[in-house]
Each structure stands twice: as C-alpha cells, then as structure tokens.
Design a binder for these strands. Structure first.
Lengths: 206, 206
DNA sequence: TCTATCATGTAACCAGTTACATGATTTT
DNA sequence: AAAATCATGTAACTGGTTACATGATAGA
C-alpha cells in the first residue's frame, strides 16, 4: 500500500502554500520561511527545502519555470505551482484541519514508562517541567504580542494561540499528576515499592 | 554537531524499558509491545524494532546474550541491557519528563496556512474536526475504562489521561476559533476578501 | 586586499518503511 | 495433506540530516 500522499513531509505543504504567491527558487523559499517565522510551525533545514522541492517536482505538483539571474549571482531555478499542486494544497489542508490524527509526542511515550523512575524523582522533574512550560508559553506570547503590535491580523497568529492552549492543558495536567502522587491518593508509596522490586535503572551509580 | 542522543528514536526508549525486565529477542519485543498496547504511545512497525535494536547495540546500550532455541523454531538472538543502557534509559526519561520540547503537530502547520482556504470551508472543517476529536477521546476513554476494570493501577494509564486532556484542549480551542470566525468579531468577511484577492487554490474546479 | 558572511547548491550518510523470504505450527 | 497463519529475520528503497563546496558581495 503506497502512503496516502506522494509527498508526506509537511514542509511540502508550506512550499505549496508559498508558491501560490508566485514562482520562487528553493533558496528564496528557505529564507522567506525563516523570515516569516514559519520555523516555529514547520520543522525544516536548508537542505530539506531542496529535497522537498524535488519530491514535489517528481509528483508534478510544481514545475521548473526557467532560471533567473541577478547580477553575477549564481543561476537560480524557479518553480511554479501546477493545477495538481493547487488541488493537493487544498486537499491536504482539508485533511489536516478536518481530520484530527493520533499523534506521538515524546511526553506520552515517557509517561507510559514512568514507572522506570522513582516517584520522588518524578516529582522533582514535574516541577522542572512546569517551569519549562512557562518559558515556552512566554515565548509564544511574545511572538503574538510583537506581531499584533506590528499590526498583523490575529488570524495569522492562530497557530500560536493553539500552542498556548496546549501548553496550558499540559501544565494543568502536570499539576494534577503531582497532586495524585503527593496527595491523599498516595500513589507514591505503592509506586516506590513496585519500583524497588522490579528494576534498578542505574540511578545509584554516578 | 552530532545529535544529542546516539539513538534518537523513541522506540529505543521502549526497548530499553522492556529490557530492564530481563533479556528478550527482537520479535518478542515487537509482540510484547503490541500486546501491551504500547503502539498507542510509540510509533513502530515490526521492521523498526530490529533496526532500533541494532542501533542500541552499536551504541553499546544492549549486547547479545547468546541465542536460545525452543522446539524446532528458528534461533533467536537475545539481548540484555548494559549498565550504559540503564543510565541512558534513566537520563532519557529525565529529559523527556523534565524538559518540555517545542513540537510540530500537523494541525499547527495547517493553522499557519489557514488563509489558503476560504472561511466558509474552514467552518465546515472545524465542525468535522470536533466530531473526530470526540471519537479519539472515546477511544482513549474506552482503553482506560477497560484496563481499570481489569484491575490495572491508574498510574499505568496516565498517558491516556494526558491524551484526553490534550484532546479536550484541542476541542475547546476549535470551538473558540469557530466563534471568532462566525461571531461578532466577524473574521469571515475580511478573510474572504483577502482570500479572493491573493490566491485561488483550485477549489472551484470540480 | 584579506576575511567574513551571504547565496546557492550537491553529495554522503544514516534512519525508517515496506516488501519479501523461509521454516514451523495449526487448522480444515 | 493442503492451506493458512505464526515466528523470525533480511534486503531494498526512500526520506531526512549534515557536512561540504564554490562563487559573490560587504566590511575591516
């Protein structure tokens, strides 16, 4: 079974989206993405932009539009969107917005093996986590505040708002978890006993 | 700059965790992970288990422990945890729990290009999203209900609880977004105007 | 003019996924 | 005894990341 989409990398979505504005060459895409702060929403590096443009070309979502030259700079290969590319962009967006997918964040994985750490240490770590979450939240807030002050319409900051909502939910969960370890439910004692009996993860050797 | 961890795949964490219980061979790991429902928290396939075990071996977090044979079945290569492996497990867990990381879920990417779709369509998609979120939530709830009824301690279901918290936050955000599009703030009209003027993503062609 | 940084791209390497292979059991 | 499924593993392909290469401009 071939994967649902010929190009699965979300960086491809970003490229398709930018190409609706007109032809660009890969380096320009890379710079523009970074300049617009899209590296907060899409993971990419300089090299991966070239890769994904190649993939989009193989899939016929973009085609070379000729090369342009400016001064004595190297030649640049420009790409334009095809009709198939426009359709792919719209279809992909519809899927991402309309069909929530099961995701695998690292914290979920860690939680499912949380018994590998002793409860006292987990308590300390969860407190550090709360601090880290506050930092991330402040960053997101700073980004939106700055952009709003510069006159950007809040629609273009909606992804940061989503992020803040998720961070707040994460923090609320973390506090709840702490209470259940330390509070009257007393998970700590049973947990410690089971931890002692089942494994020793090398914590004692420095 | 070499990546922070020699083995970065979270499936490696799962393997290290299971190997604290004693030696296993890759196939057994694969079966056990699936039997315990860990495929909800870690993305893996049959083949990737073999790959990650190889990587762990190269990194000296596990070593071959000899082979075992049962009946006339093929020989199986067993692996055991090394001391370095135990330390890596503990250290990795500490990082994942204590240091929240910036993540890149697909919905965030889509939100940052949401202007590519017309507002009326987005409204419809967000309603579909709410249904999908309810389904995912019900699944998570069913998993925990079943396991609790079977007598499992809630500590071992904490990752599902986290998931539910995130799904609820997602749904709350989605409702808020809908209100701002449709409500008195009236994002819809400005949005539609800007959408008409800047791009046409092939929606009109059948 | 030397050095640093920008602009643009390629190549080599490692990770991850999919498909295939083969013998052992179990079912019909 | 044929077919199906389980148990175990390997190989081939594709994707993604990192490092490198090279000419152009700008700053000291």
């Amino acid at each position: 079974m071939s994967p649902r989409r010929t190009v699965g990398n979300l960086l491809g979505l970003a490229v398709l989206s930018y190409l609706t504005q007109g032809p660009m060459h890969p380096y320009e895409l890379s710079r523009t993405l970074r300049a617009h702060g899209d590296d907060r929403s899409v993971k990419f590096t300089h090299g991966s932009v070239y890769m994904v443009v190649e993939q989009l070309e193989r899939a016929a979502f973009v085609v070379q539009h000729g090369t342009s030259r400016e001064g004595h700079r190297p030649e640049r290969t420009q790409y334009v969107l095809t009709d198939a590319g426009r359709r792919e962009l719209a279809d992909w967006m519809r899927e991402l917005v309309g069909e929530p997918r099961h995701e695998y964040p690292g914290f979920v994985t860690a939680l499912s093996f949380i018994g590998a750490l002793p409860p006292a240490e987990v308590v300390a770590l969860l407190h550090r986590r709360l601090e880290g979450l506050a930092v991330l939240r402040a960053e997101a807030q700073a980004v939106t505040d700055g952009a709003l002050a510069a006159g950007l319409h809040p629609l273009f900051l909606i992804e940061e708002e989503y992020r803040i909502a998720q961070l707040d939910a994460d923090a609320a969960f973390t506090r709840g978890f702490l209470h259940r370890i330390e509070g009257p439910e007393g998970w700590a004692t049973a947990w410690q006993a089971q931890h002692d009996s089942t494994d020793h993860t090398g914590t004692e050797s420095h």
